[in-house]
Design a binder for these strands. Structure first.
Lengths: 139, 139
DNA sequence: TTCGTTGTTGCACTTTAGTGCGATAGAATT
DNA sequence: AATTCTATCGCACTAAAGTGCAACAACGAA
């Protein structure tokens, strides 16, 4: 528990960022969950127990955390920027019924033949979005 | 040339939609291009030679064309809905340098092992976004 | 502990995608 | 050609993400 806290603080510090309660809370919230929240969701959850971060601060924290590579944006539905605390390569699963979003391990779909692309195009990375039904919604 | 026009009209009619110059222009524009324009881009191009469709009409046409399955939305960057005149399964390539978007054929990455997903999850479809550098931007 | 630097706050503001509406125009069926 | 139903038009409006700002707070180095 305590070392989780230290880990988070260390990661933020390593990147040359000041550690503030707001940044800590935003990053910790992202790491603690397996889904991929919107700014709005983060804002609500972070302030659930007691008010700790304003809207401007959450945006600011997410921006700076993204700039140093601790979090990343992902794009899974219309016009909504979601954030992801995992920065290692992985894929995503979207339930077509309830909309829930899950991580899929990189190893599930690795070694795609990127050399078979049209002439002149160099593929360097890829990301797969699988659609289907999740555990709860399964037929 | 003439048969392309007939083909487009027939496709719209088949779906039980009235053929209007606006719908025709929007759909023809989408079919004629290989990129994946935003509503804004479609609006501009369709009215390039002479004004033919208002903003409301372009939105309306895209909505109804999407509802009947003639076009589909795709989501490749932040908060911008793009449209795609191809409805058969295919993948996308995004140039990290110039942002251009290209289609990749389905056969490039087919037969992904969807059976290896976590328990309870049923994958029914997938889509791959490859990132890299395109012909113009190639190193 | 002090102090300089940087971050936070709240709120109003900007921006932009998208919608609603009533009047007009036009497609298709007969 | 007449009729009916539906689409389009322009434009103002909504909705919602995100930004700017200036006063204030607080992190952390010394």
């Amino acid at each position: 528990m305590e070392n989780v806290k230290n880990l988070i603080q260390q990661r933020i510090k390593e990147k040359g960022l000041r550690i503030t309660p707001q940044r800590y809370a935003v990053y910790a919230n992202l790491l603690a969950r397996c889904d991929h929240p919107t700014v709005e969701q983060i804002l609500i959850e972070v302030n659930q127990d007691l008010p700790i971060a304003s809207k401007a601060s959450v945006y600011s924290a997410l921006t700076v955390l993204r700039e140093v590579g601790l979090v990343r944006e992902i794009l899974l539905d219309e016009g909504i920027t979601r954030y992801d605390g995992r920065i290692d390569p992985h894929h995503h699963f979207v339930c077509v019924n309830c909309g829930s979003i899950l991580d899929l391990e990189w190893d599930n779909f690795k070694d795609l033949p990127l050399q078979n692309l049209p002439t002149g195009i160099k593929g360097t990375s890829y990301e797969i979005t699988v659609k289907g039904t999740c555990d709860q919604c399964g037929s």
